[in-house]
Amino acid sequence: MTEDRSSLDSVVIGVCTYQRVSQLGVLLAELQRQILACSDWNVRIIVADNDEKMTAKSAVEKASKDFPRVRIEYNCVPEKGVGFARNAIFDSLKSDELLIFFDDDQEPCPTWLAALLNRHLSVPDEVLVGPVIPVLPDSVPQWAVEAAAWGRREQPDGSIRSHAGFGNILIPRSTLESGLCRVPEPFLRGPGEDTYITVALRSAGYVIRYVDAARAVEPVANERLNIPWLRQRATVSAETWVQVVRFTGGSKVRLVASAIKTLFGFCILKMQRNISRDQALLMKLEVSAGRLVGYWRGFGSWLHS
């Protein structure tokens, strides 16, 4: 990055956090190291603590002492819900700043920030999203790993996404000025606030581009290493997707078709499971069942609203 500093955007890295003090401390130290390596850029960090007890404040204070050259700001957002924390960060932006969101339970790869900012230089008006790779402990059986139950599908570098999460995303100034980067009432307490905004942006014609080099990893917590958690996650994801389609004016026909496809897949898995005791099949069956429950709840909420 050799362009003149004055010609480049200023950057905010926004981190929403809730009671993950040790993980936040590790993340802030790595972010600060990468910011110092990207000295051509004006970068500051904003931590939005969604805990009224201000548990993240100590981690922010320590990070500020350890890396005094990196600007870091602490903002306590006591109203429960990740959407409130997102909006607090949106409200803290200056007119010349672009925004990068990063989750408190993720870890950026060593060249993550440089990769994201370098791509921004070539496509300054596009939203950029990097992959988040789940890291599973060695104790997870191989059949579970092969079932890809905790995985996120990776994309070809430069491909266009229909929506994205906020765990590893760059939102340029032109997009921030669109008026669409605000979490509305139905999504303030989450989940789905990020999906809602990115679907709304794509519907308005904004480009969301996948940047393979801007990689992050996410260690999977022990409490998530079980089939009931996976099923519940599938339920919440499907229910949330129905709400996103509802509030962004998406196609009901496509949504119903997706639900029918899920039902058909569930029936196939059920027949296979009756023949085979394969554990991977059981995992896929439970996840599929969770999605069906989510669709049912989502449609029910929509019909009765």
Rank of each mutant, 00 (worst) to 15 (best):
F187Q: 05
T195L: 15
R202L: 01
S203E: 12
V132P: 02
C181I: 06
P172C: 00
L128D: 10
I160Q: 12
D105Q: 12
Q106G: 13
S178G: 04
P137V: 12
R173I: 06
V140I: 14
S203L: 11
Y196Q: 04
C109Q: 15
N168P: 06
E126G: 09
V135W: 11
A144I: 08
G167R: 11
A148P: 00
G179D: 10
E154Y: 00
G190H: 01
V135E: 15
R173M: 01
L128K: 09
L99R: 07
A114Q: 15
S159C: 11
V140H: 05
Y210E: 05
L201N: 02
G192N: 05
V199C: 06
E185T: 12
A114K: 15
E146S: 13
V135M: 15
E154P: 02
P191V: 10
C109D: 14
I100C: 09
G130Y: 06
Y210P: 02
I133R: 14
I169F: 09
F102H: 14
V127M: 12
C109Y: 12
L170N: 02
P186S: 07
P172S: 00
L117S: 07
S174I: 03
S203R: 14
V140C: 08
W150T: 08
R153M: 08
G192Q: 03
R182N: 06
D104F: 10
G165K: 02
A144H: 08
E107K: 15
R202D: 02
G179Q: 08
F187L: 03
D103G: 15
R161L: 11
L180N: 02
T175S: 01
A149I: 12
L99N: 07
R189Y: 01
L136W: 12
R119E: 15
F101H: 11
C109G: 08
H163W: 12
R202N: 09
D105I: 13
E146G: 07
L188W: 02
G205D: 09
P134V: 10
E193M: 07
R152P: 00
L93W: 09
E177I: 01
V199Y: 00
Q155C: 11
E193L: 01
Y206Q: 07
R119S: 14
A115K: 11
R153C: 01
E154T: 10
L113V: 10
G165Q: 03
G165I: 00
V207R: 15
F187T: 02
S159P: 09
G130M: 06
I171Q: 00
S122L: 14
R119G: 07
A147H: 04
N118D: 14
A164M: 03
L99H: 10
Q142C: 06
S178V: 01
L93S: 12
R153L: 10
H163M: 11
L116K: 04
I208N: 07
L188S: 04
V183S: 07
I197W: 01
V140A: 08
E185G: 03
G158F: 07
L176F: 04
V199S: 05
G165R: 02
G130P: 08
S178N: 03
W150H: 15
